Every structure is written in C-alpha cells, then in structure tokens.
Simulated assay, not measured.
Amino acid sequence: MDSTPHGAAVTATGFGVKGPRGWAFRDIDITAGPGSLIVVQGPSGSGRTCLLLALTGRMKSAAGTAEVGGLPLPKKRAAVRSVTALAHVPGVAELDPALTVGEHLRERALLQGRFGGSVRALLRPRRERRTEARALVDTALAAAGLDPEALPKGIRTSVRDLERLEALRLSVALALIGGPRLLAVDDTDLKLSDGERAAAWALLRGLAAAGTTVLAVCSEPPENGEGVVLVHTGARPERHTPKGASGASPATTEATAPTEATDLADTAHAPAITDATDAPDTTDEQDSNEAANADKAATATKAAEDSTAGKHDGPDDEEGAADALAEAGRA
C-alpha cells in the first residue's frame, strides 16, 4: 500500500463490471495520483455509478485490474471500503429528508466515534470524546463549505428544506467526517443551475487540492478541465470537451459502450437515528440512548454488507444488487 497520508492513488486497466443483463461497463483505464479530481462522465444508464461503486469496494469487478491506495480490487474490497467514503449515492448513501441537519451530523459523529477508531479511544473521558467529535464535525463542515447558521432554521433545518447545493454540501461533509482518502460523489451536477454547478466543482477541486482524492460522477464535466482525469462511460460525447488554461485537453479514458448496461448498487447503509437532539451537550441518559442507537445502526450496516459485499461475491451478489437498484427505478 502506498504511504501517502491523505489522498489515494487510483489505477485501473481493462476494468469492468458485468451483471445478469450484460456489461455495466468495461475496458476502463485510469491513472490518477493522490489528490486527483477524477471525473466520470456519461449518460444515465451507462454504468458510471457502477464504476464509482466498484472503485470504492462496494461492488465486485468482473474484468481487468484496479488499485486504490495500493489496495488491489476486488481482492481487498473491505480494506478499500475502509479508506473511501460515499456522498450522495441514491439508494446507498443518501440523506433522510425527515431528519434535520443536526441529527444527520450527530448520527455520523456517533458512528465515527464508536466504530471509526480504536478500542482505547472509547475508554477516554466522555468530555474528551465530545470535544473531538465537535472538532471533526466543524472541520468537515468547513471543508464542505456549509455554514449551518446560514440555513433557514440553523442546525434544526430539515433536509427536505435544503437547496440542492446545500444538500450536496451536507452529504460531502458527512462523508468527510470519517477522514477518507478517496471521496466518491454521485450525480454531482444533477438539477444544478450553472452557478451552482460551478460552485460544486469549486468545492470538489478544493478538496482535491487539500489532498483528498475525489471521484465525481456527472453528466457534464467542469468547464475548466485543467488537472482533471476524465473518464467516459458509454459512447464518448461529440461535444463539450473541456480544455485547460493552456488549451490542452485534460487526461481522458474511454469505456466501451455497455450491452444492456444497468447500474448495480450495494444496498448496505445505516438506518437513520430519529431520536437524536440538536443540543450541543447531552446528559448521561441521552449519551446512553445515542450509543445504543449507534450500535443498532452499525449492526444493521455490518449485516447488510456481509450479505451483499462480503460473503457473496458471486453471481448471486450481482443479481441481488441489480434487483435492488431496479426497484429504485435506476435499472
């Protein structure tokens, strides 16, 4: 494994995923160093979400080779999942519209504190753990460019009341709490205006510049393609080829058009915790309730991952993932 402290290098050669209805994508070649912005462009149904899930260890590949941070896929899928995070992947990692911004942040901080560190860390005084959790949340919010106080109801604002760009920033902030080496964002430019799209790309460029490798799925790549590693799924577009400041085209790699391609998804994600509060400090009884809820969420997550991504790596796993996503209307 490489020794880069932050971003993970990503390489792929002849990489592909195949499901019961044919290839989702194939013949993908990627070479991206740590801290790169990797942009996956393609029409809906071309396998771009499959590529995102496969490169983050959530889906088993069927052809070629790939490495993330020096970890080979699909052999080290569990290890790759531990150093990557998903943001805004429908059906896998998405916001609950019924919860508030504060509840989402608290849930994620609880899970990170209980399951993201060492056993020794859990033995530290409660006050010290709270302080560390607040610092993680504040750092993630700052990196995502989201100021809860600027929201209509502050941290008590419901997700359903967020603007599309605000929801994207919250999803990114939640993913960053775990300190991933690679951040994967799906549908980056979906339903964004030109100004919002530019702001979203500026956010992701900033994260990459700070050292985190970013993998972003989109319909249209950023206008300024300088420094972008561009990957095509499906037929390569005939127009809108971004160029850098020097006029040179960005690095590109193209996939063969899929045969009856379908996006496959890992269905594992933790259930929402609905009894969290927005107060910054909690009583001992509230701490016990939150810890119990976090334990339940993590248990559900592990059970789902064991059933879909860890224990069944054959055709049954692929069919189950395809069926789950088909029910969500994305097949």
Rank of each mutant, 00 (worst) to 15 (best):
K153E: 14
P258F: 01
V228W: 04
A184M: 05
T13L: 12
A93D: 06
E305W: 14
T283M: 07
P43K: 09
E94C: 11
L325M: 11
A210W: 00
G45T: 09
G19M: 13
R197C: 12
V172Q: 01
P315M: 13
V17H: 05
A326V: 07
P125M: 04
A66L: 05
K311F: 10
L170D: 01
N289F: 11
L215G: 02
R58V: 11
S44V: 14
H6N: 03
R77H: 03
S288T: 14
L174Q: 06
V92Y: 00
A270H: 12
G234R: 09
A9N: 07
L162I: 07
G225W: 07
R156G: 14
D2P: 02
A109Y: 04
T100I: 09
Q41G: 10
R106G: 13
A150E: 12
A199W: 00
D186C: 13
T299C: 05
L162A: 07
E226N: 06
A184C: 02
L204N: 04
V231E: 01
A291Q: 14
G33D: 06
T233F: 02
K76T: 06
V214Y: 04
A209R: 15
A78K: 10
G206R: 05
A54F: 02
R106N: 08
A303M: 03
S307W: 01
A200P: 02
L141S: 03
P97R: 06
R106D: 08
M59N: 06
R127T: 13
D317L: 10
P5N: 08
A142Y: 01
T282R: 15
R124Q: 14
T274A: 13
V185Y: 00
T31C: 07
E226G: 13
T259G: 07
D263T: 14
D306F: 06
A135T: 13
V185A: 04
E223V: 11
E103Q: 13
A150G: 09
A257Q: 10
S171T: 09
P222V: 04
A328K: 14
V231K: 05
P242L: 05
E67Y: 01
L51K: 06
V119D: 08
A200V: 12
R330M: 09
